[in-house]
Design a protein around this nucleic acid. Sequence first.
DNA 1: ATTAATGTTCAGAA
DNA 2: TTTCTGAACATTAA
Length: 287
Amino acid sequence: MVRGIRDQVTGSRLVGFARCRCDCKPMSVQPTVAHISRRVRGQTVQQVSRVAKRIVFAFADEQRLVIEPRMTGLMLLSDPPDRQHLRLEWKFQKQKTRFSVWFWDQRGLGTARLYTLSEFQEQLGPRVLGPDALEMPAQQWSARCGQTRRAIKVALLDQRLVAGIGNLYASEILHRAGIHPSTPAELLDTMQTRRLMQATRAVLKRAIRHEGSTLSDGTYRNALNQSGRYQNAHRVYARQGEICRSCKGATVIRIVQSQRSTFFCPQCQPCAATDKATRPEKRPPVA
DNA sequence: ATTAATGTTCAGAA
DNA sequence: TTTCTGAACATTAA
């Protein structure tokens, strides 16, 4: 999302910020839209950046406007999927050109927050966010996984443990790492946490390169309202009952952890607790 | 017609 | 202290 709007927005002057009139319940904006508008109008955007799963507009006076798209939020330069769910509009001016950026959000769970620099730094702090998933070094992976008894899939979604992984990518990462999602995080050995780090970097980088995953509900789109392509590379997500694309031997299983779907291949991701001790060398052929 | 599900996060309870 | 549960929302599939 950041890459989609960065070139246009960086160096542009904000000339308007407002809610879009739509029939939906108003999204969470703090302080009020009017207050934010008063404080940032007329200023130039110095930088558009990403912090974990948030989008950050940095203004000339060091204030930060942070957008959290949550499940269905999109940042758009044009052509929204529909008018119904447009939530916010930024009006910009760059040289003599005027253009708008929109926040579109079907479910309305997304949020916008204006922070002073010190408030913003608090929101980056360890009380809110752990190290970024793409940056966290190997020794941190093992130290932090060793700190919790929760299932590794659940731990990966804890933004204070490691920031930037969502439900879809947690399943894909664990599949690539060959780790069963129910494995207690503290039981992972050094080799496994290293594989977890490598799988996280590989999956997230590929997903970014392919501009995200547009699921069957079709909600995710880039800034130009085009579909992502990473859904074509999914190994397990939403593939329950189908043959695993990696081993081609087992079928993908769906389970629920912390009220959220998890997908995995029992052959590629053996159960750490039982299989290591009990799994025999070879499975006898089925009659 | 209800219920469950969804790329999430948070407050409050267990 | 750590972990779990339900709520916020809109829409679709079962």
